[in-house]
Computed example of a mutant assay.
Amino acid sequence: MKKSILRGLLLGGALLCSLPGFALSEAGTQSLRHLQNRWAEINYQLPEAQREAAFERLAGEAEAALKSEPNSAELLTWRGIVLSTWAGAKGGLGALDLAKQARASLEQALATDPKALDGSAYTSLGSLYYQVPGWPIGFGDDERAEGLLKQALGLNPKGIDPNYFYGDFLFRQKRYPEALGALQRALAAPPRPGREVADAGRHKEIETLLGKVRVELK
């Protein structure tokens, strides 16, 4: 398998949402905030060559946080995010193994509390299913991906991330008019307090993808 197969996974960004108002202890909430902020720094500010090692370290921190609160859907979700983004930075067979670990963590989060973080585990898992290669290489499944992304939008219809990832999915499916609408909704999403780095990075990704969609619609 070529290293580039999983390079470019966008999954980590699927869960840059607000902090939960319940379930986590104060220490758990601080851990979650750290994972969110550090993820944004690595993904949007660190040179690409340094990201794989940085995501590996962050995955270790996510695992450590879960030892204190193993049933936290929020932390399970973020472990999945970090693992999947690490997979994108790594590429190759090792990336596929990380993607499988991410899937397991996200599925566990959904089994624990599917509404945690505005249903963000649906967004991240859906993103995983359309970006990982399908059989016989991986477990990718476009039909499954769309179903999960629609569930995410059902819980968070105005969210920047579910609309962005659904727009990206639709673009890859060559459903350009639908992709345009989803991306415009993503661009119009309200800012997230404390998530300035994440929002700025995501907006750049939206604008880039919108440009590609508009070219196809000409």
Rank of each mutant, 00 (worst) to 15 (best):
E216D: 05
Y164N: 09
A145H: 08
F165M: 08
W135G: 05
A102Q: 06
S84C: 08
L149N: 08
P133C: 11
Q50I: 03
C17Q: 14
Q108L: 04
R79T: 08
A23F: 12
C17N: 14
P193D: 08
N71W: 14
R144S: 06
L153F: 13
A182H: 08
L66C: 05
K204T: 09
K90M: 03
E26C: 00
A179C: 11
G194M: 09
V213W: 04
A198H: 09
G119Q: 12
Y166T: 15
A54K: 02
Q50E: 14
K158W: 10
L75T: 14
L16D: 06
E146G: 01
I206Q: 04
R172I: 05
N43A: 14
E107W: 01
L93N: 07
R185G: 01
S31T: 04
A40W: 09
L15E: 15
L10D: 13
N71I: 06
E216F: 07
Q45F: 10
E41P: 00
A104S: 07
R175P: 01
K2I: 02
P114L: 12
G119N: 09
Y164S: 05
K100E: 14
L58N: 01
E143M: 08
F165C: 05
W86T: 00
L93S: 09
L180N: 03
N37Y: 06
K115L: 12
S4W: 06
E146L: 10
F169D: 13
L9D: 09
N163V: 07
N43C: 10
W86G: 00
G119W: 15
L210W: 15
Y166H: 14
F165S: 02
K218F: 06
L183S: 06
L155N: 07
A54D: 03
L35A: 10
T29R: 15
K67V: 06
G28M: 04
Q108C: 01
Q184L: 12
E178L: 12
L24G: 11
E41I: 01
S127C: 02
G92L: 03
T29Y: 01
K115C: 05
Q45A: 11
K67I: 04
W86L: 00
R51N: 00
T29A: 13
A49V: 10
Y130D: 10
A109P: 04
L46Q: 11
A186C: 04
A27V: 09
I160E: 03
A200S: 11
A62L: 05
Y122M: 02
A198K: 05
L46H: 07
K212V: 05
A89C: 03
L153P: 08
A62Q: 04
P70I: 10
D199R: 03
L155W: 10
S68F: 04
K212M: 06
P190Y: 02
L75M: 14
F169W: 15
P191S: 00
R192S: 05
A152S: 12
R172G: 13
Y130L: 05
D113Y: 13
T77S: 12
I137D: 00
G181F: 02
Q30C: 01
S105E: 12
G181I: 00
G94F: 07
L93D: 11
L117A: 07
G94H: 06
E52R: 08
T123K: 00
A89I: 01
R38G: 01
Q50H: 11
A23S: 13
L125D: 06
E61H: 09
R192Q: 07
L217W: 08
G91V: 00
G126M: 02
A152K: 02
L35G: 10
G21A: 15
G12K: 07
F165R: 01
G181A: 03
